[in-house]
Design a protein around this nucleic acid. Structure first.
Lengths: 208, 208
DNA sequence: CGCTAAATTATACACTTGCATAATTACTCG
DNA sequence: CGAGTAATTATGCAAGTGTATAATTTAGCG
């Protein structure tokens, strides 16, 4: 008779992390409808029943996956900041360049972002998370813009409006890079972003 | 015995439009997973079987709905163009303003766009529709930018790059307006967009 | 080395999904 | 006014869904 599948006891943290990672992978590859209980379990190297042992319901697992995704994204964008040059113009240029280059422009990230974006209008929790991460990114950009303006002896009164516009510009480029990767030559988006920011701020940003 | 449900023959165009509208409503309200064959039929006032009579597969209906949505969006921003002044600067300013004002910035539209965006990376049909509508909008913008530059006796060589950046800017503002409607004062986005375009093109666009 | 508790697998069930096909009805045209 | 045709409804089905529950295995502990 067929032997029962052997297994090892991995413990709560390991298994929860594996299940969440499998969920995110599946959503990125095939959308939310691809993240079925069975597919998640298969990818996590586990049987479907175990999911219920760690998450009372599938919805709970999805929520946990979203939280992991969002905190991961903000952490990644915060980590890249430290390796930027010290002068305000260089820092801003590096920040802008990073935002439209790999690994930030990664199909997986864009797909996951689109999936969560879809929940924002009707899920208050998702809305709060989105708001926090959006404002976090924009505030950082605003600070850099203000620094760059002051370094050129210019008033920073318009920094907020410029940050909103600049953030929108980066978002739009990032999305299109993820949606239609073949439409732009290598480095084209980077160059466009730097030139656009130079025009926006009336400052000459260096191309990295 | 229960009588068979009475009906009227509505014809192809009417029924296709009703089915597409029902599909978009459902996706906007509850995401793609809410747009089941039965729910769509119910909302369209029809039995599920009829869907198959007009669309070979559900995927085909979804694609048609996406196309309707996207052409509707681009048409909406182009609609008011006829009533705008003839001068290139005024036309461009009107175009930009429309793109970040109601009814274009409508939570429903943004939710629908996010839903379809999620399918673009892996569905070739969706991808083609997205590509076509994206390029359609961008090309219109590029033509207006070129006109505005030439009217100021400036070369239009950078029109493509400027159109890519301008399109990204409008997309980003549009998304945030739909996702976080309470975050921006009335007319704030409009003003930001006009100022940003003025800086981008080094031209003074009139606020409408 | 055996016992026990928790981790994991296995099985089953009720429900929903998209789709196929047959039966009926409403409208058009002679 | 009567027949034919296409639009529409009705029914059924096989596959997939989330979840509940029972059976079994692993690993730590005395």
């Amino acid at each position: 008779m067929s032997a029962r599948r052997p297994f090892i006891r991995a413990g709560e943290e390991t298994r929860r992390a594996a299940l969440i990672e499998a969920t995110l992978d599946l959503i990125a590859e095939g959308g939310p409808q691809a993240a079925t209980v069975r597919a998640i379990a298969l990818r996590a190297g586990v049987t479907p029943g175990l999911i219920r042992h760690y998450f009372a319901t599938k919805e709970e697992l999805i929520a946990a996956a979203h939280e992991t995704l969002m905190t991961g994204l903000t952490d990644a964008s915060a980590a890249a900041l430290d390796s930027l040059p010290d002068d305000p113009l260089g820092r801003l240029a590096g920040f802008v360049t990073n935002a439209v280059s790999p690994p930030v422009t990664d199909p997986r990230s864009v797909a996951l972002w689109a999936a969560s974006m879809q929940l924002v209008p009707r899920d208050p929790v998702m809305r709060a998370v989105h708001e926090a991460t959006y404002l976090g990114f924009r505030d950082r950009l605003e600070a850099m813009i203000a620094d760059a303006l002051r370094a050129a002896d210019r008033p920073a009164t318009e920094a907020r409006a410029l940050a909103i516009a600049g953030n929108a510009l980066l978002d739009g480029l990032w999305i299109e890079a993820g949606a239609l990767p073949d439409h732009f030559a290598d480095g084209e988006l980077k160059s466009i972003a730097i030139k656009a920011f130079s025009h926006l701020l009336e400052l000459k940003l260096p191309e990295v």
